[in-house]
Design a protein around this nucleic acid. Sequence first.
DNA 1: GCTTTATGGCGTAAAAATACGTTAAACATT
DNA 2: AATGTTTAACGTATTTTTACGCCATAAAGC
Lengths: 126, 126
Amino acid sequence: MKKLTKVEEQVMQIIWKLERCLMRDIIEELGEPDTPRSTITSVVRILNNKGFVGHKAYGRTYEYFPLISKEDYSRQTLKGLVSNYFDGSVNRLVSFLAKENDIDLKDLNDMLKQLDQTEKDEENDA
Amino acid sequence: MKKLTKVEEQVMQIIWKLERCLMRDIIEELGEPDTPRSTITSVVRILNNKGFVGHKAYGRTYEYFPLISKEDYSRQTLKGLVSNYFDGSVNRLVSFLAKENDIDLKDLNDMLKQLDQTEKDEENDA
DNA sequence: GCTTTATGGCGTAAAAATACGTTAAACATT
DNA sequence: AATGTTTAACGTATTTTTACGCCATAAAGC
């Protein structure tokens, strides 16, 4: 899958958030008055060319919407990160985070217990 | 911090791996015969301009080495990913991984216990 | 309904990333 | 040492990304 560049990603985040939107919504949401609107439209156009967003014409104005979900893209990105920086091992990533004290171990334990419980519930449902 | 592009990252990975290296080491390690060496040298030159790698001249030939550690860069990238795709919550990231079955919960539990133990050991040392 | 102001698609300029050819030095072979 | 071969720094061409101006339309004010 193609990778988003810095600015593309910024705009894409907005389109993901708004789901279906007009140019004005994107510009309003971005709210950076220093960037000219014409620059934003360019980026949207390129996102469109690259297949990240689609558009539907309403008269002369377009409605834009994502063609790839944020979740799919983050999954892909995360996979790449793990493969490049953590020897392809997700556990290594988590262990890195833990060592960095980015996660509270107790929190995580609680969370895991909950997930574990969810799994058991699903088993019972089946 | 500046972000590496696709090709830059590829070359950077090699320089991180080799630590201190000559052009020929990088090219050998890359081992993609379809990419001309001159292209690689360009990328290295740009990495140098961007401050990712330094060089030391030995006569007419340069020895290259990373100026930023792989760990630092991955930390930074990960932080960005979490902030952009997981509402800034690392726990949310881990929970995502767990739901995707990318991590085995049991493995993770064992790992956490070990980390927990390490912390206690460190407390005893102090 | 005419003038003024805002909107946004489009073409394209400017900057950055990627790709390659040339060439001069380094090394090998005789 | 003279010749051929490999190496890699450098300059630049090409492509992609980023940024803007223009202008036709739409909307607002009078």
